[in-house]
């Protein structure tokens, strides 16, 4: 019973080919493979980290981006603590679709208070020279949609990837504290009760 670890589930959503799997792999394994297969089905990786003294296990879920796979993808939205809306700065369509991804997530994740849910927006492929989406556009969208934190990332050269995940964790933890503070009831204790590392049934 020395350390307490919280398990947080984050999910990467966005159009096919914006780099969701690459971001996840960069963050968890610190590797990048430009020719990584596109994701079929659903995958996840775990990553342990410490944020502001909190020990956290991040469970990062990665899905197939194509519309067709929606019915397979959406059951996994449930129970997410944070959603990383991802687009690629060299693909304006993927940026325009952010709103749809957000909607889909809120609907299927069964989010109780969408306006309070912690979304983080990632504009990936910062390393690519031909940008189609400017930082200003992206920031404006984030501001108008709920003041979401925005990070321009490059899974290829590791820019801002860890920072973005850490911010995601902070947002979730901040949410928890606020909720705990406002309604100190049993039901909230269920909400991410820390589990003791390695402990089993006593």
């Amino acid at each position: 019973m020395t350390t307490k670890t919280s398990l947080l589930k984050v999910i990467l959503l966005g159009d096919g080919g914006v780099g969701k799997s690459s971001i996840m792999n960069r963050y968890v394994t610190n590797k990048f493979d430009a020719h990584l297969f596109h994701t079929i089905g659903v995958e996840f990786l775990n990553k342990e980290l410490e944020v502001d003294g909190h020990q956290v296990t991040l469970q990062i879920w990665d899905t197939a981006g194509q519309e067709r796979f929606r019915s397979l993808r959406t059951p996994f939205y449930r129970g997410s603590d944070c959603c990383l809306l991802t687009f690629s700065v060299d693909d304006s369509q993927s940026f325009l679709n952010l709103g749809n991804w957000k909607k889909e997530f809120i609907y299927y994740a069964d989010v109780k208070e969408p306006e309070k849910f912690p979304f983080v927006v990632l504009g990936n492929k910062l390393d690519v020279t031909e940008r189609q989406v400017s930082s200003e556009e992206a920031q404006q969208w984030c501001q108008e949609n709920g003041d979401y934190p925005y990070y321009e990332t490059s899974a290829k050269d590791a820019t801002n990837v860890a920072v973005a995940f850490e911010e995601a964790v902070r947002r979730v933890l901040a949410m928890d504290e606020r909720t705990d503070h406002l309604i100190p009831t049993d039901t909230v204790k269920l909400h991410r009760k820390p589990r003791s590392a390695g402990a089993c049934c006593s």
């Binding site: 449930r78 129970g79 997410s80 069964d110 009760k193 589990r195 089993c200 049934c201 006593s202």
Partner: peptide
């Protein structure tokens, strides 16, 4: 599940518990 102890329970997100 009984053998798994409490760990699995805590991994279960609150929304799912509610559901």
């Amino acid at each position: 599940d009984a053998f798994r102890g409490t760990e699995e329970q805590h991994q279960r997100p609150p929304e799912e518990v509610a559901d």
